[in-house]
């Protein structure tokens, strides 16, 4: 039995004439301990897919099964790292994590909760900033808080919705390593949604491109057979890496071309001849 399974999932927004099917016929299985990345263009329905898996949305048709049970609501078993951090701005770093821990372990004593908060804030190297508010932190630090908050709840599966999308390239690289380091400790199941193919290849075991919406659906999957831990600089010379990267990009670009040519409307151009300034 698969750990997470999506069976013929479709999602439609709106009704009647205004209905747009964002996702159609999504089939996905993720095994326990796997790190899967879904790559897609912006606006292709990635966030909708994430919200279906974490339980914030319900599919219009089809089934989302988590450990064999249909997903009906959010659950502490599935931790979510949001694209825009979603930290509560009126709480400090420690309080943001504390709130999550308290919800996930309602029976724990105050001391245990505090210890856990400190542990996870330390894990993302933010101990000196534990009493600061999100506003006082940089984007990278905020996303690290978000990571700490998700992991402190001890979820069985981590769902990351473009966690590094809003960060600069350097911070991005650092955080990728940090997330991988944390993940490799206990190899929880992870689902990464991203728009960066390189990031997907560097981090995941398996990459699945999402054909852009409306009617977005998953494309053929690509297995990444590169030994962990992966080295970013060596990766550039790795044949396997190059091959997979080119294949994925070719596929995605192919979709892009297809999407462009799918438009049947022909625009009539005005007949203009450039004016000559020579004569």
């Amino acid at each position: 039995m698969a750990y997470l399974e999506l069976k013929n999932v479709s999602m439609t927004y709106g009704r009647g004439a205004n209905a747009t099917e964002v996702l159609s016929n999504i089939n996905l299985t993720i095994e326990e301990g796997e790190f899967v990345a879904i790559v897609g263009f912006t606006g292709s329905g990635k966030t909708t897919l994430v919200n279906l898996i974490n339980g914030l949305l319900k599919p219009t048709s089809g089934e989302v099964l988590f450990k064999g049970e249909p997903v009906v609501d959010t659950s502490h078993e599935r931790g979510v790292i949001f694209q825009n951090y979603s930290l509560l701005p009126w709480l400090t770093v420690g309080q943001n994590v504390h709130m999550a821990v308290k919800e996930a372990f309602p029976k724990a004593s105050k001391k245990e909760i505090n210890a856990r908060v400190e542990e996870y804030v330390a894990m993302v190297n933010l101990s000196p900033a534990i009493n600061k508010r999100p506003k006082e932190l940089s984007g990278g630090m905020r996303q690290r808080v978000s990571v700490a908050r998700a992991l402190a709840m001890n979820p069985e599966m981590i769902i990351m919705d473009e966690p590094l999308g809003a960060l600069d390239a350097l911070t991005r690289g650092n955080l990728q390593d940090e997330i991988l380091k944390i993940w490799s400790k206990d190899k929880r199941t992870a689902l990464l949604i991203t728009n960066d193919v390189d990031e997907g290849i560097y981090m995941a075991d398996r990459i699945i491109p999402l054909k852009p919406g409306p009617n977005a659906t998953l494309g053929p999957e690509f297995n990444i057979n590169i030994e962990r831990p992966r080295d970013k600089t060596e990766l550039n010379d790795n044949l396997e890496y190059k091959k997979t990267r080119n294949a994925i990009i070719e596929y995605l670009m192919g979709i892009g071309e297809e999407r462009k040519s799918a438009s049947k409307k022909v625009y009539e151009l005005p007949e203009l001849t450039p004016k000559s300034f020579v004569a």
């Binding site: 959010t74 659950s75 919800e103």
Partner: peptide, 12 residues
């Protein structure tokens, strides 16, 4: 809406 989503994910 992000804060509401957080509340939902944390199951407040």
């Amino acid at each position: 809406k992000d804060y509401i989503n957080v509340a939902k994910v944390l199951k407040l």
